[in-house]
Amino acid sequence: MKKLSANQKILAGVAIAAAVALPLVTPDFRLFQASQVLIYAIAILGLNLLTGYNGQLSVGHGAFFAVGAYSAALLMNFAGFPYWTTIPAAALICLVVGLLFGLPALKLDGHYLALATFALALAVPQLLKYKAFSKWTGGAPGISIDKPPAPFEFDIFGRAFNADVWLYLFTLGITVLLFFCAWNLVRGRIGRTLVAIRDQPMAAQAMGVNTAIYKSLIFGVSALFTGVAGALNALTVQYLAPDSFHMFLSVFLLVGMVVGGMGAVPSALFGAVVIVFLPNIAGSISKSLPGAIYGVLLILLVYFMPKGIWGALDRLRQFRLPRHRDTGSS
């Protein structure tokens, strides 16, 4: 079983400490952006477990994000759940939804699975807008929820510990927990099995691995991660509308996963930074053509870092510590 080296432990500790200290030096709206990065990182991590580690291509993870978000909102508005209980509830609901969707998906491979998940991504906003459900979902205009309050308020170093700071720290705590869980999941036997199913499905099966169970379970776990991210997003934004869960959300999660780097846990953070900030950068370059600039920036990212940011960092590291490494042949 792979363990963290001392250096990596220190790096992770410093990163968490810096994230905890962030509210001291940043205004509320920056904290909102930081929360968004964490939320998308969780969602991308979920997608990476499914697509990066297990090779099941999902072009529709925005659907699970939406299910998580609406679960949280409906439980708060109609069942009177306290905000923090919606996170485990959304996790459970999305796990079940993911498992249910994962079962028929077992029969579909590659591009067929892409179509099925893409259809899911298109169907969810349509269903949310559907008249018969609008009593709960609010239809096309959407619904709002109450902002979660801070459990206690005080000042620290001249910074008010308010609801925004609390929400950020709440999100951070769940992010750290989920990243820790994901890392534990992939570093051992389960992770190796998932990768084996991705790379050599027939061989894995021949060696007695029940690929169906692994594939549908990881579908559920992946939906769980992305659904928790959706629920956190609902709490952070406090407003939901079907059009926030347009198919482009799914595409951007996919983009975040690939430019972050597939098949590694921390890479989701880099991917999230890209999808949160790249649109702003594109907008500041050209007001009239933000979409085109965004597209060009994406293409350039792929061009210079074909294995994502994580892959590029990995290469830099190997460059610094030169050793003979067989890159293999085909």
Binding site: D326, T327, G328, S329
Partner: peptide, 11 residues
């Protein structure tokens, strides 16, 4: 004096 390489492996 022909050398050949596959990726990083010299053949």
């Amino acid at each position: 004096d022909v050398d050949a390489h596959y990726g990083g492996t010299q053949a």
